[in-house]
């Protein structure tokens, strides 16, 4: 009962925050709306007793990705001065498509019999250990685990290449002034 109420409350907050994130013209405020949505997501994970996932959600999405977004915003010029139209002129069509898809999803979710299933029981208190075993088990997820590390390495290389512009010279700024002390 309490859980249902909390779910409703958090869902409401998340929807409102999502609206802020989408409609607010101030980019930093919009980011804060996004952070609130992500935080609500983590709380929902806690309600589902997926504690590890909740913490990973906060550490990765709020602790790293949201900060990256803020940095990206701060790098752009004229931030907060972007007063162009916020709505594309085809927005009614977008609304129809999004609403239709959402409605269809809702329809199928309500009809899906799996939604009526009761939870299988108490969550294993050692599920983090089970997760760790599964991650390095050859019968489990060891290939995705190692591929993930390669993928992240590739992402890092790509990101640095894009941000640095493939430059090999030392630094984007002129070095020290002529004849400075060493």
């Amino acid at each position: 009962m309490v859980t249902t109420f909390l779910f409703g409350l958090i869902a409401l907050i998340m929807v409102l925050a999502a609206l802020v994130a989408v409609t607010n013209r101030n980019l930093v405020r919009a980011t804060m709306g996004l952070v609130l949505v992500l935080f609500g997501n983590a709380v929902l994970f806690v309600l589902l007793e997926a504690y590890f996932l909740a913490m990973a959600q906060i550490i990765i999405y709020i602790g790293a990705i949201a900060i990256l977004i803020v940095f990206a915003i701060m790098l752009t010029r004229h931030v907060g001065e972007d007063w162009g139209p916020a709505f594309h002129r085809a927005w009614p069509w977008a609304l129809v498509i999004a609403g239709g898809l959402g409605g269809a999803l809702l329809f199928w979710m309500v009809r899906w019999p799996g939604g009526q299933n009761t939870p299988a029981g108490q969550v294993d208190p050692n599920y983090v250990q089970a997760l760790g075993q599964a991650l390095v088990n050859p019968q489990g997820y060891v290939v995705p685990f190692e591929v993930a590390s390669v993928l992240l390495l590739a992402a890092l290389i790509g990101a640095i290449y894009v941000a640095w512009g493939g430059r090999r010279v030392k630094g984007p700024y002129p070095q020290r002034a002529e004849g400075g002390e060493r």
Binding site: I60, A64, I65, I67, L68, F71, A72, M74, L75, L152, L153, A155, L156, A159, I160, A163, W164
Partner: peptide, 10 residues
């Protein structure tokens, strides 16, 4: 700043 955040994210 962006690069540090990027490396940190990874």
């Amino acid at each position: 700043f962006y690069l540090f955040a990027l490396v940190f994210l990874i």
